[in-house]
Every structure is written in C-alpha cells, then in structure tokens.
Design a protein around this nucleic acid. Structure first.
Length: 268
DNA sequence: CGAGTCCTGTGT
DNA sequence: ACACAGGACTCG
C-alpha cells in the first residue's frame, strides 16, 4: 500500500507526537511483525528516547538514543500497515509502543506483511537502496536511467534504482511523461528521460500535498484518509477512457504487478 | 526475467 | 471458487 507520499504523510503527522518522547513499553501481538527476536526487541526499545522520525524511501526511521547510545527502529508498512496514534487495540493490532506521556502508537496491519526492526545502524539492505526521487538531480537521473536495460515499469519499482516509488506512482509518472511502461530504459532519449524526471517529481509533490492516496486501507497517523485518489489519472482505470485522449486504458501484468497505461498517449 | 511466498479481505 | 490488492524477498 503505502508508497513515498503515504509514508511521508505518516511521518509528518507522527513526528510531532513522538519526537522527544521516551518509549515506555513496546509489544508485539503478532511476533513475526518483528524482524528479529520480539522479546529482545521489546527490551531494546524500552527507555529509548525518540530523537527524530525520518523517512527513507518507503521506510520510517525512528532515531533512538538511550544512555548515549544511538540506534534505530526501522518500520515498513508494506501493503496494509498503519501507525495510528492512540488507535484502539483490536483484531488487526500487530504491535504497539506506549510513550512516557501516555500516548500509544498502534500498528494495525491486516495482512501482517509490515515489519518493525530494531538495529544499531542502517541495515545493509537499506543502505543499498537508490536515491530519493525528490532529491536526485535531473542530469543524474537521466544518466542513471539511460544506463539500464530494464523495462521502465520494472525499473521504477526497483528500490535500488530509486527509493520510494510503488505501483500507483510508477504508473502515474509514466502516464504523465507519456512513456510506455514496457519501453527499455536505455532506449529512452534524453528529452523523454527529463520528462520522466519532472513527472516523478510532480506526481510525488502533489500526492504529498494531498496526504497520499487511500484506495482502501491507508490512513495517516491520525486515522485520516489521503485525498490523492481524486487526482489519479491512470492507476486502476483499466477499461475506462483515457483522461487525455479518450482511448480505452489498458491494464496488464508487468513484473507481476498490474500496470495501467493509455495505448494512444504512451506509445512503445 | 518469472514464479512462489508471506497474509487477509473484498469483489465478481 | 477465484482473482486481486498499495511490497519485498527468495528461488530457479
């Protein structure tokens, strides 16, 4: 579910609640939500001061400190995870953290794919991810893109290429840049590659402004839905007329993910 | 590259 | 009963 704009919205709404607070207690109702040993993690988190809440691609990083030692709580929401402030514990609560002011941060996750991982430093897996889509410069993006053999859709979903895009915003960006998802990255000319860079930035910025896209499960940390679905142009519109030209929007599987594009606006 | 896995819920 | 869902990992 959540991609960069959703995770950024969670970060923005959650940061003022948790920054500067101390973890009173953490617990895992579904042990596999914890990457690592749940008991040891609960113990490691107790008494930690949350210094900052950051976003890294689709990951949330809680920067922790206890007795002068820094560490990290890495959270990935995956498909259906939500971090809700003072959320009512229920059937889908997989983990939670209570803070020294009595606030509870409750992790609700229907499909149980979400993960919390405590670590002393940024895990190597994360360190290997690509740049932030909103930080990479145009020329560097173009060079990076055109050096790759993969199809555009697969490449945009590859977190080692860019960190933070997912299925919705990959399709939206390709549509806005009028690029066919099956085109090879290497074959994209410099001009179209620049268009794609601009399209990625635009769609992410607008989506963040709207608080993300709630298709079904996604909520920010206050429980509010995102509003970007109203601005979605291509994702999930298979069979409907293209908003630009009226042609029938195609939906097909690419890299095992449903991919939406307009066969007239986005030529091979 | 594709296919299977981890999971539960919803819609046809 | 079956397909599908915003993600990522592992295996051929």
């Amino acid at each position: 579910m959540p991609e960069l704009p959703e995770v950024e919205t969670v970060r923005r709404t959650l940061a003022p609640v948790v920054e500067g607070r101390i973890v009173a207690e953490a617990s895992f109702a579904w042990p596999r939500t914890c990457a690592g040993d749940p008991r040891a993690t609960e113990e490691a988190l107790r008494g930690q001061r949350i210094e900052r809440l950051e976003r890294y691609g689709k990951y949330l990083l809680f920067r922790l400190r206890r007795r002068g030692r820094e560490s990290l709580l890495v959270v990935h929401l995956r498909m259906t995870g939500n971090l809700i402030v003072n959320g009512a514990p229920g059937e889908f609560t997989r983990a939670s953290m209570s803070l020294d002011d009595g606030t509870a941060v409750v992790f609700q996750d229907v499909r149980k794919f979400g993960r919390w991982q405590w670590s002393e430093r940024l895990p190597a897996r994360l360190a290997a991810l690509g740049p932030e889509p909103l930080e990479i410069g145009r020329d560097e993006f173009v060079a990076r893109l055109r050096s790759r053999r993969a199809r555009l859709k697969a490449l945009l979903l590859d977190q080692e290429f860019l960190r933070g895009l997912g299925n919705i915003y990959a399709d939206e960006a390709l549509f806005r840049a009028r690029l066919h998802p099956l085109r090879t990255a290497m074959g994209v000319g410099p001009r179209k590659a620049r268009d794609l860079h601009a399209a990625i930035r635009a769609v992410l910025r607008h989506a963040i402004e709207a608080g993300g896209t709630s298709i079904r499960d996604y909520r920010d940390s206050r429980g509010a839905q995102g509003d970007f679905l109203r601005q979605i142009r291509i994702y999930g519109r298979g069979g409907e007329p293209c908003v630009t030209c009226g042609a029938r929007v195609r939906r097909e599987l690419v890299a095992q993910r449903s991919t939406h594009y307009c066969p007239r606006c986005q030529r091979q």
